[in-house]
């Protein structure tokens, strides 16, 4: 008998009812966003007019599907490559941070560790404006002093990457540190005793052990980057990523079923990636 469970049958029934209601609440808006992507109508609303895939593949006005909508596809591609660059950088810096905080001792370590976590508790909008303000200051400075126009420091892809990187590094650091902490240092020592060089130990013992965490840090960073809105909004230039493009469409054109198609695409894509990262983190056989 589980002591944590309610004792009476009635209470247990109520509890299960509550859980069902909760998951219904979680699912309702996602289902609503998904279902109208397949409705053969100009508006994402009832009544149901029959199943269609036109909002994904349609080519002609007035039904231009997601995959033939030039601006949405451009947004998707921007999101993809911004996400890849940002996550790669975040994993590299995060791995360095993990080794720094797990393996090294130095002065002010605990204070610097808190500083490393701080970006996680700064609202995204503020990270966005701070990067915007700082880079504009530099750009204005070089423009006044040397008459150079550093356009890459004006809102655009580079700033979006820097803005997202400012907090993603914290996330990847935490993911990678968690696994590095569980690593048995005796394995490295054994390899060193057997005559391997430091670099070789790192490449053949430590990094293979860390690979699942590196992968899952990459996926998490990619997903967060892909869906980020608040920080990106302040830094975006002409090459807007998908969430910004979709928001623009929503505000200017109003809701159309093509946005539902985008939603379905995002749900499926991020669901699959998230599952991949969960499975990568799973302990394999023979591993403690």
């Amino acid at each position: 008998m589980n002591v944590a469970a309610p004792r009476s049958g009635l209470m247990r029934g109520l509890y299960i009812g509550y859980m069902l209601a909760f998951f219904f609440y979680l699912a309702a808006p996602l289902v609503a966003a998904a279902i109208f992507a397949f409705n053969d109508s100009q508006f994402p609303a009832l009544p149901w007019k029959g199943f269609t895939l036109d909002w994904f593949f349609g080519r002609e006005e007035p039904v231009i599907g997601l995959f033939h909508d030039r601006r949405l596809m451009a947004g998707l591609i921007n999101s993809l490559w911004i996400g890849l660059i940002v996550s790669a950088l975040a994993v590299v810096i995060g791995a360095c941070n993990a080794f720094l905080f797990e393996r090294k001792s130095f002065r002010f370590k605990s204070a610097l560790y808190v500083l490393m976590i701080v970006p996680l508790v700064i609202p995204g909008v503020i990270l966005g404006i701070s990067i915007l303000v700082f880079s504009s200051m530099i750009a204005n400075g070089v423009s006044d002093a040397f008459w150079w126009e550093w356009d890459f420091l004006r809102p655009g892809v580079l700033l979006v990457i820097l803005g997202q990187l400012s907090f993603l590094v914290t996330i990847t650091t935490l993911v990678i540190s968690a696994r590095l902490r569980k690593f048995d240092i005796a394995l490295e020592e054994a390899a060193l005793n057997l005559g391997a060089s430091r670099v070789r130990v790192l490449a053949t013992v430590t990094l293979p052990y860390l690979t699942p965490a590196l992968f899952s840090g990459f996926v998490v960073a990619f997903l967060v980057s892909f869906e980020n809105f608040n920080t990106t909004l302040m830094l975006v230039g002409s090459d807007a990523p998908l969430t910004i493009t979709m928001y623009d469409r929503m505000v200017k054109v109003g809701s159309t079923p093509v946005l539902n198609a985008v939603s379905v695409f995002l749900m499926v894509g991020s669901g699959l990636l998230a599952l991949a990262s969960v499975f990568a983190q799973r302990p394999r056989r023979g591993e403690g």
Binding site: L30, L223, E227, S255
Partner: peptide, 28 residues
Amino acid sequence: FLMCLIPLWVSDLVRAFGWILLLRETGI
């Protein structure tokens, strides 16, 4: 636990959009 996490990975924008479709005047 996974079911709890899945909506976590869906953009805020999609969730807000879903709520709009549910709650607006012509909504579900």
